[in-house]
Nucleic acid binder design. Structure first.
Lengths: 203, 203
DNA sequence: GGATTTTTCTACCATTTGGTAAGTCTTGGC
DNA sequence: GCCAAGACTTACCAAATGGTAGAAAAATCC
């Protein structure tokens, strides 16, 4: 028998994989258990219910995502570098852990049982980013725009990228990095032209 | 009793709505039947199986999508206008029928049972677009790039937009047109800078 | 090394699911 | 008016699903 939380971690990892590929409804606890060579009741023991498992996977994923971005948001670089750092780190996560963003995509679907929870989980990060952007705008270092719209646009680009990567991989495309880099550049350009004050634009 | 294919059409419409919001696995034939005030076996009578229903919905949607683009692709405008026309018409579909793109998003997920079928359905349109682009490149009217990559990028932008719109709507945002227009402009800029030959760029 | 707690398993269960079989009803052609 | 074809329904069913109850096994603590 596995000591400590090892089994729990294994379940979380496999659940993330399953939820983010074949979806929540498409995942059955029986299949999950079989894939882990575990009895279904072991899953329910750790997570009470299937919904509980989804919540746990979600919490875990958002935590990892937040950690990845936290260090960038608290850095002391200049604005321009900061935007670039932010975009780069998000894309790094998307490339290294496409499953994580696949989950986001799965769960952010309207009508998903976990959508409100995701919203709550993400809102601190979001509102923080919005606040930061609005401060920058107030001080004139960033052009006045709807911060929420910009964020949303960036968000859907990244989630779209994650989808794209998985599709490419399953389609057998070997070089998956080039389109990603291309999209990253695209997003970066968009953010810069959206956010850089007009008088500072050097393009 | 409803004459002609009226019931069939109603089932198709409701199935599209359900598949593209709560997903294929999340949709039960019983619920679908109840929502239509119909017996489940009526659905199975028309479409043989749940999978058959998905295929029918898919065929129907791709057909509508293709029709929307066909007229643009066969138009005789200049390249530049043609790209803009294409983008505009795709976005019009995305705005008027978000369900249609929601289905694309749902179904294009790797591991989806309908993914290969979608691929087959879309490939004529895709390969046609790629051929056209490559001809333009050959003749120098369009800059040399990987046509497939550009298409993929555009595709994921549009599907991402559909997601965005649905999320906005469920989040209670009333003005859904502005972000859509913003993304459209973004995509348009990307395509132009990607495709316009260097010597012709006027930006 | 025994008691206790944590972890995992076996045995069931109620409900839902997609699907089959066999009708009934309706409509249009003759 | 009859009847064949199409449209729709009732009656069932086997498998899968999420979940409960409680025993067994392993790890931990003293």
């Amino acid at each position: 028998m596995a000591p400590r939380g090892e089994t729990k971690e294994r379940i979380l990892a496999k659940a993330l994989e399953s939820f983010s590929t074949i979806g929540y409804d498409g995942t059955s606890l029986d299949d999950l258990a079989e894939a882990l060579d575990i009895r279904k009741q072991t899953i329910l023991y750790h997570f009470v219910s299937k919904r509980g498992l989804l919540n746990a996977v979600l919490d875990d994923s958002v935590k990892k995502l937040t950690e990845s971005l936290e260090e960038v948001l608290t850095s002391t670089n200049s604005n321009r570098d900061r935007i670039e750092d932010l975009v780069r780190s998000v894309f790094r996560v998307a490339l290294e852990q496409p499953l994580l963003l696949g989950l986001l995509r799965e769960v952010s679907r309207p009508g998903s049982p976990a959508a409100p929870r995701l919203k709550n989980q993400m809102s601190p990060l979001m509102s923080r980013a919005i606040t930061w952007m609005e401060e920058e705008m107030e001080s004139g270092r960033m052009r006045r725009t709807d911060a929420q719209l910009v964020l949303l646009s960036a968000y859907s680009t990244v989630v779209g990228l994650a989808t794209e990567i998985e599709i490419l991989r399953t389609a057998g495309v070997e070089r998956v990095l080039r389109p990603a880099a291309q999209r990253r550049q695209e997003l970066l350009n968009f953010l810069r032209t959206s956010l850089t004050p007009l008088e500072k634009q050097t393009i």
